[in-house]
Each structure stands twice: as C-alpha cells, then as structure tokens.
Design a protein around this nucleic acid. Structure first.
Lengths: 243, 243
DNA sequence: AAGTGGTCTAGACCACGTG
DNA sequence: ACGTGGTCTAGACCACTTT
C-alpha cells in the first residue's frame, strides 16, 4: 500500500513503483507493461494519471511505447561513437547486441542548400542521398541520411549499402576521413522519421550531424542521424589540438 | 477559424498555430505566452488539450515553463564545444550572448566510486568537488559538478571559481589536458538539479560527462554537466586517429 | 486576493493493432 | 471483434507567484 501521507504527487509515486519493477529486474527488457486501464484500476487512479506516470517514465527513457500495442521496458543503452567508422554492426555486436542495417533508398538528388554550404560545394550540384534504417536487437533505433559527393565515389549506388559504408569507401574508393565536425542535440522526431521508426510523431530523439572531410578539408560525406533518445549514449574521445 | 475537416489532432493544430507565432517572430524570445485558461478559451478546447499542445512545444524546445509563472518562448540555442577550454563565458559571448558562472559549493569530499573508477584513482581518496551554475542571458542553463585530484592543484578552493577553471589550472598549476573522453545523452533532470535550474523535476535534460587526462593518461578532471535540453547544441570537432 | 500552473477525477469516442 | 493506446470534455482543488 502507498503511503498517503506522502506529499509527492500520485503520478510520481506510481512512477516510482513502476520504475522499481524495472530497475530491480522484475520486468525485463522489452517486456510489455500492464495496460493503462489495468494500471489505473490497480492503483485506484484515473487513466489520465496513469498515463502521466507512463509519460514520465518514457521521458526518463525507462519505457517506450509502440504505436497502439502498449508500453514496453526499454533495453539498455548502447554506446555509440560517431567519430569512428569501424562499422556500426561490429561496434554494436562488440557490446553484446545484434545489429542490422536496411537501406530505405539510394538516389542521386540535387544537393540540399545546407549540405552544399556545410560541405563547401556549389549549390545545385547533384549528390548521392542514401537513407538507411538501423536496428539493434531487431528494434529500429535510428534513421540515417547520408550525402556523398559522386565525384569521390562514382557508381557507389550499385553496391549493396546494408553494410559498413566506410569499409566500402575505403576499399573501393580509397577515401579516408581526416576530420569530422559533429553536431549533437535533442530534438523531436518529425513525421517521416517517427513513422519509419514506428514511434509517435513528436517523440523525443537525439539528432547527430556529422561532416567528414579529407586532409585537404574537402567534404567527403555528410551524415544526419535521428536516434531514439533512449537507445544510446554518445561516447567520443577527443585529443587536444594545439592552439 | 480552424479547418475541422483536418484529421490532425486538435492539440497538434493548436501547436502549429502557436509554433507559427514563435518561428515567425510574432512572439519573441523569453516572451510570456497567454495563460493556459486563456488559450483554452481562445481555441475552444479544454485546458487539458491546451496543455497537451504546450507540452509538445516544450518537448520540441520551442517554449519552456518557469515554475508556476507561465510558459515562455525559448531563446536560440548556443553552440557548445565540451572539448575546448577557452572558457565558457568568452565562448558564449563570442556568439552574442551574455554568460555568467556562479559557484554553489566547493568542498573536499571522498571520491565517488564511479569517479575513482573512471579516473583510475583509489576508492576513498579525497577529491575536490565543485558545484557551479551557469547562466546564459541570465537564464540558468546548466549545473556543473567537477571533480579534481587535489594532488594536482593544492589550494585550488582558495581561488574564486566563478571564472574559467582551465585558465586557473593552466596559469596556476601548469595543468594541460591532452585527451578527453566524452559521454553525452539525454536524461531527465533529478530533483536537486531541476530545483537549482528552476524547472520541474523530471524535465528533459542533456547529460555530458567529461574525463580529462594528461599526456600520461593520468586523470586531471572529471566534469558532469546537466543542461536544459533546449539551451544548446553540442559542436565537436574530431580528428581521426591513426589506428 | 488574484492569477498561474500542477494535479486529479470520471467519464467518452476514435483509430489502430492483434487475435 | 476486441483490446490497446490516442484524444478529448468539463469540471475540481491545491500550491505557488505575483500584485
């Protein structure tokens, strides 16, 4: 029974009880929580209040929702280093998870203005655009949008892109990035991305943008990643530059 | 009048109208939005629905709330490079904002276990712990918790710490970081941090952890930062390591 | 004292996913 | 067909901030 003398709002007390079942391991990763109506009955609260507790846990990353199927326990975050290119799949597998990449589309498009500006190429130039979806333990965790200058990698789209892109770029085209500019911030997922990840539009995500250049500072690749906010931790190692 | 044929939920249509006033500049940064009750009347909706729209905008980072005072338009994000130590204040001022640092506490404590492990020092060792709050345009934006090995900087706490810590460490103690390990992920703000930032417990934040080492790999500083999720963008430049 | 957001109740209907 | 979450109404009382 809950202590009714406690001043903490009801929804936070419910949150605490549910959080407890998760961190203590009573509810395992990917396990489905009881239905909202069931929870409200169990705690003698309205569904609105139950939802408030659930939304709070979602914000904390402890649970996630899948469309209209229900609420589930979030699996452990993976570590992710956007500055390395040893290959997503092997990197994730090193941590004991399974990973998979799926190519959603690969096309030649007119370069978006911001990509042209960030990459220092002329506006309107045609570039390769690759859209991929990546899974961790069969859960779709990020959408990736990649832009490449065809000048550097002609015929790239003929290859299968469900594997490490950098492995391909290195072995087939002798490309090697020397420097990367990263931009990272929390952002809500817009409709197309959210849909592709099977979550609600407007749910929280983490946005990562990566601009890779070669030794001459010439743009090699620009990559935008839209992650579920609870799927990973960014882990980067930076050496000091002499100024 | 809103198009009632539209399938988009009401709260998202309200969101759109409010978002429009913000991005179009009709409502300026830090301006207060109309009261929830006023909005619900204006749009002929319940307060619950109005709140749903506001919470959505909050998640997107477009507005923020201040205790029970109301909802306000979020000012522009600053760029933040956790790999540099040119000084927070000057870095922010370069971008046209004002900045200020406030020391909340400075003490000698027994090293927390995770700090000892991450820093490679013996558990139980005494270390300096510094707690600071940083403002951008007089808005509290982050809480910083710093751990330092007193061996490297004896007497540090006698200095004023409302300024660039690394300037102090360099000029007074000849310390210079060679390498930094960064860990970055979205996380909700716990009670003490949220209170110190004047926001609700459980609101979204961005967590940054930084471990600085010298050339010999010895731990110099560990720093935990708890940011408002909408206050900044992480911007890091990484040079490729030869593997 | 008045105004604000914070919390909560007790319902309802809808759209979608799963059997 | 049924169970699920997604949305929404029309109220209420409380705690805190501002005037």
């Amino acid at each position: 029974m809950m202590n009714t003398m406690e001043k903490r709002p009801v929804y936070l007390r419910v949150r605490d009880e549910l959080a407890d079942k998760i961190v203590s391991g009573i509810w395992q990763a990917n396990e489905k929580l009881p239905a909202e109506r069931q929870l409200s009955e169990q705690f003698s609260i309205t569904r609105v209040t139950a939802r408030q507790a659930l939304v709070q846990l979602e914000a904390e990353g402890l649970i996630f929702r899948s469309n209209r199927r229900g609420w589930f326990v979030t699996p452990q975050r993976i570590n992710y280093d956007p500055s390395r290119d040893i290959g997503f799949v092997s990197y994730v597998e090193e941590q004991g998870f399974s990973a998979r990449t799926e190519t959603l589309s690969k096309t030649l498009v007119e370069v978006p203005d911001w990509v042209a500006d960030a990459g220092g190429i002329a506006r309107g130039t045609p570039v390769y655009e690759i859209l991929r979806r990546r899974y961790i333990n069969e859960r779709p965790c990020l959408i990736e949008k990649i832009y490449l200058n065809p000048k550097n990698c002609p015929g790239l789209l003929q290859h299968s892109l469900n594997q490490s892109l950098w492995h391909l770029l290195r072995t087939e085209y002798q490309l090697d990035p020397a420097e990367r500019d990263l931009e990272i911030y929390p952002q809500t997922l817009d409709a197309p991305v959210a849909e592709a990840l099977g979550v609600n539009t407007g749910s929280t995500g983490l946005y990562i943008r990566r601009v890779c250049r070669d030794q001459n500072g010439e743009f090699l690749e620009i990559d935008e990643e839209f992650w579920l906010h609870n799927a990973m931790k960014v882990v980067v190692q930076v050496s000091s530059k002499s100024l």
